[in-house]
Design a protein around this nucleic acid. Structure first.
Lengths: 351, 351
DNA sequence: TCTACCACTCAAAGCGATTTGAATCACGAA
DNA sequence: TTCGTGATTCAAATCGCTTTGAGTGGTAGA
């Protein structure tokens, strides 16, 4: 069988076909100004008709650009290879689809990230990187900066002074508002089921929670604060334990819809009713397949589309390729508080 | 600021450093036999010490291999860019991590797949493709075969005679067994909430369900059969409607854990108890963050890890690159039936 | 008429690897 | 001593693009 390679048209073939030089054809296709409009037209038409596509590897070698951005996904840290990942990727790819830019997914062990980065850089595999799930002193920022690899951080690292690009949502503000709202409703014993303690986003949420409590003269009960992975199981176990305490919490903050599902079950298991006996506000990354609005009772949420964040990140990376300095890319997105049926006035104190 | 490019060591530099030709260095690094062991040792040591990495773009151009496999993710068909996606990708990358092979994620509109394929092929972007979510007469198989692009189908296309590689789970057998078990428990009115009707996996499940019913002399009630997207919302709506029918179903088959969550809520909303009043078996792709075992009541499932499938698919693709003929790659995985608390004997007939 | 300039187009030199075909060396056989 | 041979190593061609620097021909101004 004839390899398909034989059938593939190269720049040389196309140029020969047209009776033009490769230079002119290349320039015509890449939109350079010094080529006659009529010629350009003729070239594009022929390229289309003959199905010519530039070999990206040759192109990348010649230009020195990789034509790809890398998205690193932590393999060990079970955190972000969850349902978030696909939505986030989906957002990125949505924005990049119209450009000829590949998305290279690179799994990465939390242990030895730097060697992987080094490999990505020196092999010229990607032009830029998206990294996620930062810790406060995230070492990846220094590593990538030193390696000269452009990157955009999804989230924030608190204690890093090196200038770098980031996009984050206002986790602190979101949980501050959510907590304040619960307090307004009369809740005093509020439990919080946060994410992994080492992650900045969880730290920020914790900060927002505590600040809101303290602003009203309330002391957060350390017995009612938990963290960990965003699984239904973790939500269930923590909530079940919290509901056995005295005084019993009348409201929950949940870090994700997954944990919220677990909390929900724990509330029911305890014979309580969500929305009346116990209130809950969960953080919603907006999964199309798990709609807070359609739950029964519908779930009050702090909402921010992780898909939209992915799309915006792709856009910012494109701008950075065009020269926008990384140090000027700082976006802090506000988070909506969407009130639904899972939040209600605190029941009369019993304990 | 000095570009990082200046710092990157090229083959030429490394060869000069060693006082060897590029040829020898290249061969030493790529494990060719005609190089002295001592020399090879010296070369590898220097490469390691100086942090040399081959520029993949040059490598790809020279060898004609892309060093990447493409994973197409449907953008329109909301189906597979769900929580499955990240697990599946995770499985693929897990297996590929040790090789120097990239995973290129390519979003793709269900409408115009062929142009995208054509682009992938002629631009030499990937060596092989993974395609998912087939329909019975899936046109992509013919398209990719004609283009000469190796691919592996995750799932099966029923009516396609062109030989091709696939890996699928035994959806028909799984639902046959699940249905038979429910019948054994005394259930007669069994509702089924399937996936999107055009997908083969959903068709196979339907077939298994019907066959099992008929084998016991039961006629599936068309009023109790529904399909659609794998969302909690869809599960909830369908289940709610089904529960209002007479006779009321005493058991449910759910196509995914997401729909199962919706069915679960509908059952509760109707004031019924899962596991006693109503039974349910759901299909579980094994999401680490949504564990059937930890639900209350724990969920009986037909279980097959989509992550494991991803890992195996990556492995098979590697073998295909080595020459294993696509027509010999056919794997049909059995599906476990895991019985837990959500299934119980049918309640006494009331209607 | 001559020169300058503009608008195009081209041949050839990279990009950084792999690979072909030839050269070198040491050594035992003739 | 000479030659063939196997074990190594090398120079140069190649992969398919982009880009540099050098022509073209034609038109307008002096």
């Amino acid at each position: 069988m004839l390899g398909v390679h034989e059938l593939i048209m190269k720049l040389k073939d196309l140029a020969a076909e047209l009776g033009l030089s490769q230079t002119t054809v290349s320039r015509a296709l890449n939109g350079y100004p010094e080529v006659n409009e009529a010629t350009r037209e003729r070239v594009s038409e022929a390229a289309r008709r003959l199905g010519y596509r530039a070999n990206v590897n040759a192109q990348r070698l010649a230009t020195g650009r990789a034509g790809a951005i890398g998205v690193t996904l932590p393999l060990q840290r079970s955190l972000h290879f969850g349902p978030h990942t696909s939505e986030f990727l989906s957002g990125i790819s949505e924005r990049l689809a119209q450009y000829d830019i590949d998305i290279v997914v690179t799994p990465i062990d939390a242990d030895d990230e730097v060697p992987v980065f080094r490999r990505l850089v020196s092999s010229k595999r990607v032009d830029a990187l998206v990294i996620s799930a930062p810790t406060p002193n995230d070492a990846r920022i220094a590593a990538l900066t030193e390696l000269g690899m452009p990157f955009l951080l999804h989230g924030r690292a608190d204690n890093v002074t090196i200038p770098h690009a980031w996009l984050d949502i206002d986790n602190e503000g979101a949980f501050h508002r959510a907590t304040s709202h619960l307090i307004d409703l009369g809740h005093r014993h509020i439990a919080m089921i946060n994410g992994p303690e080492d992650q900045t986003f969880a730290i920020h949420r914790d900060r927002g929670f505590r600040a809101a409590m303290q602003a009203r003269g309330l002391t957060p009960d350390p017995q009612l604060i938990g963290g960990g992975r965003f699984t239904d199981e973790n939500g269930f176990r923590l909530a079940q334990a919290f509901l056995e305490r005295t005084p019993r919490p009348t409201a929950f903050l949940a870090g994700s819809m997954m944990t919220a599902l677990g909390v929900f079950r724990a509330i029911r298991s305890a014979g309580l009713e969500l929305g009346s006996d116990v209130s809950m506000i969960a953080h919603d990354d907006v999964f199309p397949y798990l709609n807070a609005d359609n739950m029964v009772p519908s779930m009050s949420t702090t909402r921010s589309s992780i898909r939209a964040a992915g799309a915006r990140i792709a856009e910012l990376l494109l701008q950075m390729q065009e020269g926008k300095p990384a140090s000027s890319v700082h976006e802090l997105w506000p988070v909506e508080l969407v009130l639904r049926e899972s939040t209600g006035p605190a029941p009369r104190q019993s304990g």
